[in-house]
């Protein structure tokens, strides 16, 4: 049962150098075609942040802060803590799923396993994520929020994020190569999930019945996003809600299991499906 998972993970580890180098080439290729180059990776999310803050913060909330367990937090900050991870999640899901279909014709003859393609995409996107995350730290300092012990959890949650995205992309990239409709479905799913995750509004507030927010919690991004936010705000530890943590890890494990299995089953024949 663990044989397939072990093989795929071993490949990632064995070729880690190649993943980094391929990712750096891809980043180069991505920004070389634009006049403003790498500035776009800050400019693009900044424009989106501005518009979401304008519509949701000013327009819908009327500038009211968000009430959390530890008091009020300005909406702008609260939103940034969810939106910045989301800017990493969304393209990684869509791009990671497309990675095999996009590249398999180039690499099928090369001397490295196809399972590196989703990981490479993940690394390409994490370049922007790291930049945006450091900007977030600066903004937090400006607002007078300083590191606490809870910030250690960020390592855990960002680890969760990477493992989850890898597992998802592995399974997803196989399905997307075999059935092209899946990619379209995924894109609209991600657009929907932006509003069903605690990014732009707080589903845990008083406006929504508890049973609805509990159903929304089944979305694994809910776990990661609230986790990252509560680490920043120092609200809670991840082991306080063990049921939810176990659920998240079982879900991720299932994705990884099916991802590794289908990937290994189909990878020799990906070319036949193009």
């Amino acid at each position: 049962m663990f044989k397939e998972i072990k093989q795929v993970l071993q490949e990632q580890f064995q070729y880690r150098d190649l993943i980094f180098r391929m990712a750096s080439f891809e980043i180069k290729a991505k920004y070389q075609i634009h006049y403003l180059g790498a500035i776009w990776q800050i400019l693009n999310p900044s424009i989106q942040i501005a518009i979401y803050w304008f519509v949701f913060g000013l327009g819908i909330r009327g500038g009211n802060p968000v009430t959390t367990k530890l008091g009020e937090v300005p909406f702008f900050l609260w939103m940034l803590m969810g939106l910045i991870p989301w800017f990493f999640i969304s393209p990684s899901i869509v791009g990671g799923s497309n990675s095999v279909h996009q590249k398999v014709s180039l690499v099928s003859k090369m001397k490295f396993p196809i399972s590196l393609l989703p990981t490479t995409k993940l690394f390409v996107n994490s370049f922007q994520f790291i930049t945006m995350l450091s900007l977030l730290f600066i903004v937090l300092f400006i607002y007078g929020i300083y590191p606490t012990l809870h910030w250690i959890q960020l390592v855990y949650y960002i680890g969760c994020l990477f493992i989850f995205l890898f597992s998802f992309a592995l399974l997803s990239s196989t399905i997307a190569t075999l059935v092209r409709d899946y990619q379209m479905l995924l894109q609209s799913m991600m657009r929907m999930l932006l509003y069903l995750s605690p990014i732009l509004w707080d589903p845990n507030g008083d406006r929504v019945p508890d049973w609805i927010s509990n159903i929304l919690k089944l979305n694994p991004f809910y776990y990661i996003l609230t986790g990252i936010r509560s680490s920043f705000l120092g609200e809670s530890w991840f082991f306080e809600d063990m049921t939810y943590t176990i659920y998240f890890w079982l879900f991720t494990f299932a994705l990884l299991y099916f991802g590794a299995k289908t990937h290994l089953k189909f990878r020799n024949n990906f070319m036949d499906y193009l």
């Binding site: 049973w211 509990n214 089944l218 049921t243 939810y244 659920y247 079982l250 879900f251």
Partner: peptide, 11 residues
């Protein structure tokens, strides 16, 4: 996964 999913919803 389903079992714990149900537990999360029933919390």
């Amino acid at each position: 996964v389903i079992l714990f999913g149900v537990l999360v919803v029933l919390q």
